[in-house]
Structures are given as C-alpha cells and as structure tokens.
Design a protein around this nucleic acid. Structure first.
Lengths: 339, 339
DNA sequence: TTGAAAGCGCTAACAA
DNA sequence: TTGTTAGCGCTTTCAA
C-alpha cells in the first residue's frame, strides 16, 4: 500500500491540510520548521501523491492524449519522440490512442479519450474527407472533451488550440516541378489513401506543376496506395505499364516499395525511371541510390507541438485557435535524372 | 462541464447508487425498467464516467505504463503497435515513458510512473549492466509500484509478471556461423551499446561461433556503436581498416549505416564485404542488395505481451513470475557471399 | 501558523 | 429493488 498524506500527517503530528500545503509548491503559509519535517518524512517513506485523487479535485491530470494512425512510419515516430521529449520534461505523459481509418470509430475513441481525464489532446491523425455530418459529430465530440486540441491538419475544430499544417500542396508542386525541370513529361503519381486530405493536397500540387508546364493531366497516371511500403511495391508494375519516365511517390515508404519492385523487375533507378519521395525519413539516404525527396522539418514541428501544448495547458488566459504552417524543401539526391 | 452520475440521478428521480449500479456491467439488482431509463438518460447526455473518480475508489485505472528507449527503431514501434492493439481493444491505454540510458534517471522515472496510477507496467527498455546497488534500487522502486511488470529482458524483478526474453546469444551465434560457413575467417563485429545486456549476449554468440570454428577471438575486430544508423555509418571505415571480409552488425539500423558508408567509400556489398544484420526491420528487404539478417517474431512477441498483461490485470489469482523465450531465425538474402 | 471540514465523482456495504 | 452513507486521497476554504 502506498503511503498517503494521512500517514505523514500522523507521523508528523499535524493535520492532512498542513501536509498538503507543506508539500505544495505554491506560496506556503506553513512554518519552515513544520515544512522541513513534513518533507523529511515524505521523503523517508518515498511518498508519491495519488494522481487519481489529485486530478479528481483539480479536474486536471498530467496526461496528454495523442491520436495517430501508424507509428511504424519513421516520420510519425520521430514526431512522437519530439513531442514526448518536451512534455515529459514538464512532468506530463502521453496517453496513446491508435486509430484505424474509419470515421465511425473516431467518436467512440473520443468517448474513451474523454473519460481519460486528459489535460490536452494532440490529434496527429490524418484528416480524411468527411461528410458534413461526420465533421459535425467529430467536432461535437471534441468540444465535449473541453480541453485544448492540437491538430496536424486543418480540422476546423472549434476549440482552443492550434492547427499545425504543412504545405503539402507546395510539396507536391516542388516534387513534380523538379521532374519536369529534368525533362520528364510522363510523370506517374503513386498517391496515398484517396480520402486523406494530405493526399488531395499533394495531388493538387502535382496538377499545378503539370498545368504550369502545359502538360495535360491524365488520371490514368495516378494510382492510389495506402502509404505503406507494400502498396508502393504492388503499384509499381501498373504505373510502369503506363510508360512513365518518372514517378512522384507521395511518401518515402511507398518509394521504398517502388525501389524493391524495381529491383525485382530489373528496372534501374534513375536510369530507366526517376523517383521522388516525400517525408525524408532517415532511410532515404541509405539506399545505393539515395532517394530524392521532399523534406519536412519533423523535429521542429514536434518541438513546437509539445511547447504549444504545454502553453495551452498552463496558461490561464485563453488563446483561441490559431494556425501554424511549415514549408517543404526539395532534397536533391540520386533517384532522379535529366532526360 | 461533464455530466455526472448525480445529474443523471436527479433527472431519473433515483439515487446515485442506483445509477452507478444500473450502469455497471456487473450482475445488477436494479429493475429492468429503472436500468433502461438510466441508460437512456446517460446516453442522451453522452455520459462518461470520470476516470479519476473511478480509479480513486477502485485503486485501478485503465492505464498501462510502458517504458522504452527509442521508438524510431521500427523494431520497437512495431512491438508498440502490437501491444497497443491488444490492450486498446480491452479498453486500456498505454502511457508512454521514454528514457535515456542512465540508471539514475530510471528511479526518478519510476516515481513518476508510480504516481500515474497504472494497472501494469511494460518495461521494454534494454537491460543494462547495473551494479548490484543500482539493481537493488531499481527493484525496490518496481516493487513499490505494486503492479505486475512485464519486461523485455531478464531484469530479475521480484514482482508478478513475465520476463519475455529473446535468445540473442543464439542469434549472434547463427549470424556468425553463417558467415563462417560462407568461408569468412576475419569477421568484424559492429556491436551496440556496450553496457546493454543484449549486446553482451549477441557478442557471446559471436564468440561461440568463432571458437567452434577454431578462429581466435580478436577484440580489435569488435567495435561499439549505439544501435543507430549513424553509428554504423561512422564505424565502417574503422572496421574495414581491419581487413575484414565480413561484418556482423548487431542490428539492421547500423547495417544500413554500413550500407551508406560502403556506398560512399565505393565498397560493394557483398562482393567486397559481407554483412549480416539483426532484427529484420521491413526496410531490410528494400535495398538493392537486400540485407541478410536475424529475424525476431515481433508481432508474436507484441501480441503475447499485450495478452499476458491483460491476464495479469484481470485475473485475480496471483501467477507469480515466469519466463517466456523466443528464438532467432536466419533470413538469408543478398548481403552475404561465399568466399 | 495550523486544523476542521467540505467536496471532487464514484463504488459498495448496509439499511430500508 | 432502491436509498443512505461512508470513504477512496487530495485540495481548499474557513475558522481557530
């Protein structure tokens, strides 16, 4: 059985209120002597306040909820580590909720999250194309949580927090433009899940670059995967069948799948086909032919999310909702060539 | 403000006890009619029990602590996902604690974890070579938690739970033996952090295989990194300077760093040097020259940990401490060749 | 400077 | 079948 404030009070011959105050970091009206005694005894018994009791009375816990799709993607796990690093230093812990892609489940999840007595929520899950009704339900569920919410996309939540967005459109544009600059005209696009907002944005960038170069958009050259390596692997033969000379892969993982398939089919990169990825995961630079890709400043983003979350929790004055945008960067490596 | 049991009681014209019972899944002594009414009202207001209150009275929460070093390693994040998948289905959430390598911090962390009101702890952090005093301190801290603890190594904790171990020694042996079978005699070893138990075990396996083949052990051929890609990259030139014809890398990440360095120095794998990794992360199979490596059944392990944790939480009869061991497997791919 | 007491939301023993 | 009540461990008025 854990030692409680009561045990300490008894041993020190004071009341529980005094112990509570002595142990509190707030301005104390307790005499130095009593305080020292209390602290000593507390240490002796290795006293730890019971979090459930503390949060029951304070209506705040040291827990921050975080929701995401898949941690196996290095890109997400790096983000996670960065965020954790910031909040853990301040005594907070992340409570994980992993969610498959399905709007219905999200609200269930949120009931669960809401019951968890968290002080803030980090919604790092990809935004999907919701119907208006789904949107409303989700927003209601979020509002009922009554805590600040950080999102990794523009969810349009009406609560306090920040939409941390990345300019995926610009990323898609830069990637495609780079291929065009290298003389490619038939550029395949291995897209991610169709219903993700981030997929649509990258696609818009792709189209923009094409249009700007006077290349007509051909939807046959766009094929949808699910952002996993395996889907890149599976889609390779289709896209090559379309006689493309270059591929814009919407993330690095799928590009790796493409690499693997290319090896299998004896197609060499970049001689026979150029490939551009997206994310710049650490492995991108390991391959024999390092992957040209679009960089995302994950460390910076993670750090910001962590700090902003803490600010939202600890500052009393309300800050409303704001947006913070990050920009893409082309990382030129070996997987693309001029034709 | 969240709806409480009291609000529902008022609206239904019954007492809070009745509401509590009606909403509980246990055998209920509440009339069907009252129960239906209560459930209806609860749903109407989207009632969620306050976890802090529930765990304060039950002395149990729906939280499971998990401790690890680095999530960026695909190997760890896969494990994490598997565990989460099992426990989330049962209504539990994982609370993350990431810890750098430092015994001193571990106990601090544990105070924090202990305050967190968790129902079980999963200690997925690498075991280090502790002094006896450190060991005792850690064990005491763990015991004070008074919850079942799963570990990913043989920590020798005295509490209820399971040591889930992997036969790293055998893995190191198989990897090295494979290289020896291929005719290699000068086999370099790119090891992980020296103070990790798992490093020492792999090293023992390496030595065993060498000895069995009558090759004398040369400590100059062993060099220590930190299990990151970058350390593999940095150590490559040293190990090649020792005129080895093959390298046993203690994990895939470092092997990838070796790949990268090899490319830089114009050394070809496996023509000029054979490489064996360890872990079998998904990327191992993407490279132009796919990595021969040692497989670990991560999915199986993760699933077991999740299920065993739930069993420990939910079963009332005490089960003591047991050990579960998993075995390595050689995955022969393209990065090794006969000489 | 300290203590008594109320109360956070919930559960469970005991009474009715 | 239902209500009353005590209490989980803590914080915070209010009174001494």
């Amino acid at each position: 059985m854990q030692v409680t404030i009561k045990d300490i009070a008894r041993e020190c011959g004071v009341s529980v209120a005094t112990v509570s105050m002595a142990l509190s970091s707030k301005k104390t009206r307790v005499s130095e002597k009593t305080k020292a005694k209390v602290i000593e005894v507390a240490r002796k018994y290795n006293y730890q306040p019971n979090n459930a009791a503390v949060s029951l009375v304070n209506k705040k816990s040291k827990l921050i909820g975080i929701v995401f799709n898949d941690l196996r993607n290095t890109h997400i796990s790096s983000l996670f580590m960065e965020i954790n690093n910031v909040v853990e230093k301040r005594g907070y812990s992340l409570v994980c909720h992993i969610i498959e892609d399905d709007g219905a489940v999200e609200c269930d999840l949120l009931r669960n999250v809401g019951a968890g007595n968290i002080s803030a929520l980090i919604w790092a899950k990809s935004l999907e194309k919701y119907t208006n009704e789904e949107k409303k339900k989700l927003n209601d569920a979020i509002l009922q949580l009554d805590v600040p919410v950080m999102t990794m996309d523009n969810y349009g939540f009406a609560c306090e927090g920040t939409d941390v967005v990345f300019d995926y459109r610009q990323g898609g544009y830069i990637a495609t433009k780079h291929l065009i600059d290298y003389g490619h005209r038939r550029i395949g696009c291995v897209a991610g899940k169709k219903n993700y907002q981030v997929t649509q944005e990258r696609l818009e960038g792709y189209k923009m670059a094409l249009q700007e170069a006077g290349i007509s958009y051909d939807e046959k050259l766009v094929v949808y995967g699910d952002y996993t390596m395996n889907s890149g692997y599976m889609l390779f033969s289709y896209i090559m069948g379309k006689k493309v000379t270059a591929i814009f892969s919407m993330n690095d993982e799928m590009a790796f799948g493409i690499y693997r398939a290319a090896r299998m089919y004896g197609v060499s990169i970049p001689e026979e086909v150029s490939v551009v990825g997206f994310d710049n995961v650490p492995f991108a630079d390991v391959m024999q032919v390092p992957l040209t890709t679009i960089g995302i400043p994950v460390e910076e983003i993670g750090k910001y999310i962590g700090e902003r979350t803490m600010e939202l929790i600890e500052c009393t004055e309300k800050k409303g909702r704001n947006v913070r945008e990050y920009k893409p960067q082309l990382l030129l490596r070996g997987s693309t060539r001029k034709i």
